[in-house]
Simulated scan of single mutants.
Amino acid sequence: MQRSGNVIGTLFVGGALALTLGALAYPAMLGLDTVSTTPDRVIANTQWGPLTEGERDFVVKVRAAGLWEHPLGQIGLQKGQSKAVKIASQHLVDGHAALDTSCRKIAPMLNITLPNVASPQQEGFVTQLKGESGRQFDVDFANILRMTHGSIFNTIAKVRSTTKNTLIRALANQANDTVLDHITVMEKTGLVDFDTTVFNQTTPPKLPKSDMTPPNPVPGQPQVVLNPPPNPTSTPLDLNAAENGARANGG
């Protein structure tokens, strides 16, 4: 109990992070709060299977997740104090670069417009951690990212288990593997306060949708690309496999 109290004390220094964790961190932090009014409504019939509103939003939100977590991983490589935090940072950069490539591949195939900027809520986390250093950075980095990845895990599973679209299914497979990996490396830092994490995952506050929604890209603006590290270990989707899956399903 004493250790937990010390960690919590570190987390809530000055009340600033208490506000952040209490007011910002919950499933929508990764952009997977329900945006659609009718997520199960089919909006297009494609050669890869029907596409629903919820599945379209899933692709947009996976892209948005990378737009804040990839740069945060780069920040962690520079500012992280412990080896475990630096390793976790490498996983963020590596995993989200591959996921982003997959999103940018399938979005035009499904006529989905991708954002170039994360949501205001997500950008707020980046701003906060940019202003921190030392152990405070490491602790907040591990706890914020463990919480947000934990929040998204069940949503990915639901998309994977219900979609009839082979491209969405493939992206959900990749997202599931990536998020589980990121959950694991955050836990390996030894800095995660599980009581606070579970509390914030299961009792989300309500925020305006404008805070949780990435803005539409500016017309004519070049698409932001999240570059992989020098020696990447994560790989984007194999679209040939998705094409074969569509043919096997009669698409």
Rank of each mutant, 00 (worst) to 15 (best):
R3V: 11
R146A: 12
A97E: 04
T197D: 13
R135Q: 15
L99W: 05
Q81K: 11
G49P: 06
E132V: 11
T20H: 12
P27W: 00
Q122R: 05
T10F: 08
E55M: 01
T184W: 09
A23T: 09
L171S: 06
S82Y: 09
I156C: 08
T166M: 05
P205K: 07
T148L: 12
V62C: 07
M109E: 15
R63Q: 08
G22M: 02
L180T: 15
A98G: 02
T189H: 03
N173A: 04
P50A: 02
K105D: 13
K130S: 09
A64T: 02
T166R: 09
W68R: 00
V139Y: 00
A248Y: 01
E187G: 14
A175M: 13
Q128H: 14
G22P: 03
A97F: 00
N176M: 13
R63F: 00
T127F: 10
R160P: 03
E187V: 11
A88R: 04
K83G: 00
N176S: 15
S89T: 02
A44K: 11
F194K: 14
I152C: 07
F153V: 08
L171D: 08
T148P: 10
K79I: 13
P232A: 05
A84H: 09
L67T: 10
P217G: 02
D33I: 00
S151Q: 10
D211W: 15
K83I: 06
S119W: 09
G31W: 01
N116C: 01
T162Y: 00
T127H: 13
G250W: 15
D140A: 12
P228I: 06
H96A: 02
K164F: 10
E123D: 12
Q2F: 10
Q136L: 09
A16G: 08
P205G: 06
G73W: 03
R247S: 08
N200E: 07
R135D: 10
L24W: 14
S161M: 12
L92D: 07
Q136K: 09
S102K: 04
Q78N: 06
T34V: 12
V179Y: 13
T202H: 15
L171I: 00
N231W: 07
L24Y: 09
N165L: 01
P217Q: 03
P230Q: 10
V93H: 03
T166P: 03
T127Q: 11
D211F: 11
G80Y: 00
K83E: 14
T203A: 10
I183V: 10
G31F: 06
N165C: 01
V13T: 11
Q174D: 12
G80W: 00
K86L: 05
K86G: 05
F12I: 05
I43P: 06
L92H: 02
S82R: 15
D57A: 08
P219Y: 01
K130V: 10
T213I: 08
S102N: 05
P219K: 01
T184L: 11
P27Q: 04
P229I: 08
F153A: 07
E53R: 09
V85R: 00
G14F: 07
H182C: 01
T20S: 15
L237Q: 05
L19D: 12
A88W: 07
D40M: 11
L77M: 15
I75H: 05
A28S: 12
F125D: 13
P214Y: 01
D57Q: 14
L99H: 10
G245L: 12
P205M: 07
Y26A: 15
P208W: 02
E123S: 12
G131H: 02
D40W: 06
K79M: 04
D177L: 13
T178M: 07
R3G: 14
A172G: 03
D181Q: 10
